[in-house]
């Protein structure tokens, strides 16, 4: 990725973390709403988890050759 792209992502992230606290509603907030960038971390970790876990499942059993049902 180009540096400008990286910079854009970093700046957007910082802005979103700042806005997270600006938009915080103390009456309805959960503990995780106070963690800076909680949903960014959740999204990033979730992304890895989904890809890695699914690929493992796929290799183990789910994915088969395309003629699987034609030539048992």
């Amino acid at each position: 990725m180009r540096d400008s792209g990286r910079l854009a992502i970093i700046i957007t992230t910082l802005v979103l973390i700042a806005l997270q606290y600006a938009g915080l509603d103390p009456h309805h907030a959960h503990w995780w709403d106070y963690i800076p960038g909680f949903w960014a971390l959740f999204g990033f970790a979730g992304c890895w988890l989904i890809v890695v876990a699914s690929k493992k499942l796929g290799k183990a059993i789910i994915q088969q050759r395309e003629d699987y049902y034609d030539k048992p």
């Binding site: 992502i9 957007t12 992230t13 979103l16 973390i17 806005l19 997270q20 600006a22 938009g23 915080l24 509603d25 709403d33 960038g37 909680f38 949903w39 960014a40 971390l41 959740f42 999204g43 990033f44 979730g46 992304c47 890895w48 890809v51």
Partner: peptide, 17 residues
């Protein structure tokens, strides 16, 4: 603001992932 920020954080870092 809470909903919007939550969604954008989530989506931005899915994109990074």
């Amino acid at each position: 603001m809470g909903h919007i920020v939550e969604s954008l954080q989530l989506l931005l870092f899915t994109f990074v992932g």
